[in-house]
Design a binder for these strands. Structure first.
Lengths: 333, 333
DNA sequence: GTGAAAGCGCTAACAC
DNA sequence: GTGTTAGCGCTTTCAC
């Protein structure tokens, strides 16, 4: 039973029509009689025919695949719970359209080069960009390639024309900051992410938009999205602002680190210090107390990003979208 | 500047040689003079040539891509910290060989169908299987497709001939169980994963191999790898074995749930009850106390799986490998 | 409404 | 050591 894979030719023969007609049926083009269509569909079934994408692609110069590019340093990706959500949603949305998702990592120059070559080679119809940061050389490389691209997460900096779908980082930060204020907290600090990332810059903007730029300045410490970084930042913040009674931490993972620093310092949470996180990842429910945090609709972000990318592929315009976040109250604040 | 993408023909012309010679240089075949090689490389650079994979694939019927198939119910993947590690490592290893990684999700019948069609269509040179379970219909579909495949994680059941690379689940479970015994614990319970998964069945085997099948039987409760499931299982275990002084939980996420159940029940950890986890994921360092757990070398698992798959593609044999795990002692036991 | 035929860009077999 | 050439399987005019 090791017959060669059937080609469109075999199907045509089995259906008693020409290859052209089979192609028309397969692609849903007009000008096919009902009889022919039925015969072709039957023949496809009987022969077990599956199109050869390479041949189709050679002819149409469309590949049927989208590349998802991660431009995050690898260690961080390693700990990033958001990434797999985006990937899952994107894979499913693309599968709905019979397209596939290729993954590439552009963490260093070599990786970026590979991505650039891949795109210039026309190996993907479009690109989905994950976790780019301000001034990321990848953005320029992608734009130069001419391949349609959409980012998941805001694209920072005025220089890029790349559209994006993102959760409302600014609004989410405002939400939780206002919640802390509403709880009667008066000395509220913040631990940010790296300021060249949207989650770093925009969540800080949300925070300061509530508490004021000036006041907030000495209450803000910068972290790096790792748990150890969160712990260090919390320790530093406690030192500089001993009277602190609340802290908004820009990611759950960092918040877990902050919780540990607070415990070590003998501060009760939320009794002495209330802690707010961001992400609503699995970590948020694993800490003690569980984290009050901000949920990002990441599956919707991916859905929207795919939708926008498909529009772009069809030559239609697509505007960036920002999706609302949601406060999730648990024990830590 | 919107020139058409250069083809091998343009390169040949620029280098003053034939297309055949260019192809030989590109593919590192012998019988090329140094002069010709230099000229071709220069021309490639000058023209910005990138091979057209579709054309190459059409000719060679090799695609240069590997598909990673997730056969996990989607909700679980969502919380699974292991998956992104495997994917990152596999992507990097494949990139080293200039191959790319396509992601597919085979969580339901529709997904499995798509995967089967994809493989039968010859759209990938090989498959990397993630989180298959015993009797998974996907395994049969993959085998029927004739596409070389390797699993990450042991393949359960005698029926499948698919080779795998896995962490030593049994040994890791033994390691931590012996550690608990060595700490003087006498009433040691266990919360397993689903028994049709390797992590479910093998970690339980490791546990019972230390404590004995009979003794262990009433001390074992089954979980589902979720945090809520871990919490429920812990509650049930405490009820049936009130004198419990230690528990080995088959994943960190479930262990986080167990910790919460213990806290609610007023049992001190590790004072009253020692808790051991498995995975050494980010969660393990976020709980309080931090989890004593078993580290799996997942990047090595992916490395090995890719290596085996490449061997298979070259027509060489490949034997399954099991990689040693490591005990990571923190606060919970 | 349908068939015939011309390539898409590449590799590999063959002739020199 | 190098050039020539015949397709790989498909889509898409162009006739009919």
């Amino acid at each position: 039973m090791e017959r060669k894979r059937p080609t469109i030719h075999d199907v045509a023969e089995a259906a008693g029509v020409s290859r052209g007609t089979v192609s028309r049926v397969l692609n849903g083009l007009p000008n096919v009689s009902l009889a022919a269509e039925v015969a072709v569909r039957r023949a496809v079934n009987d022969t077990g025919y599956v199109v050869n994408r390479a041949a189709r692609s050679l002819k149409t110069s469309r590949t049927g695949s989208i590349v998802m590019v991660l431009s995050e340093p690898q260690e961080r990706l390693f700990e990033d719970p958001n990434f797999s959500v985006l990937m899952r949603a994107a894979t499913n949305r693309l599968a709905d359209r019979d397209m596939s998702l290729v993954l590439m990592i552009a963490g260093d120059d070599g990786g970026r080069d590979r991505v650039a070559r891949y795109l210039r080679g026309g190996h993907a119809d479009g690109a989905l960009l994950i976790s780019t940061h301000a001034g990321d050389p990848l953005l320029e490389a992608v734009e130069r390639s001419g391949v349609p691209a959409v980012a998941c997460g805001a694209v920072l900096g005025r220089t890029s024309a790349i559209r994006y779908a993102a959760a409302d980082d600014r609004g989410g930060a405002r939400l939780i900051t206002e919640y802390l204020v509403g709880q009667g907290r008066r000395k509220i600090g913040m631990i940010t992410g790296p300021l060249d990332t949207p989650g770093g810059a925009l969540r800080m903007e949300g925070f300061t938009s509530v508490l004021g730029r000036k006041v907030a300045k000495r209450m803000v410490v910068h972290g790096d999205y790792t748990q150890a970084g969160g712990e260090r930042a919390m320790t530093a913040l406690l030192k500089s602002v001993p009277a602190l009674d609340a802290v908004f931490v820009a990611s759950d993972l960092m918040a877990a680190g902050a919780l540990q620093a607070l415990q070590r310092a003998g501060r009760a949470v939320p009794g002495d210090v209330a802690v707010g996180g961001f992400d609503d990842s699995a970590i948020a429910a694993a800490t003690s107390p569980m984290l009050t945090t901000v949920r990002q609709p990441l599956d919707q972000v991916a859905d929207e990003a795919v939708r926008m990318l498909m529009a772009l592929l069809d030559g239609e315009p697509a505007e960036s979208v920002v999706l609302p976040t949601e406060l999730v109250v648990r024990g830590s604040a």
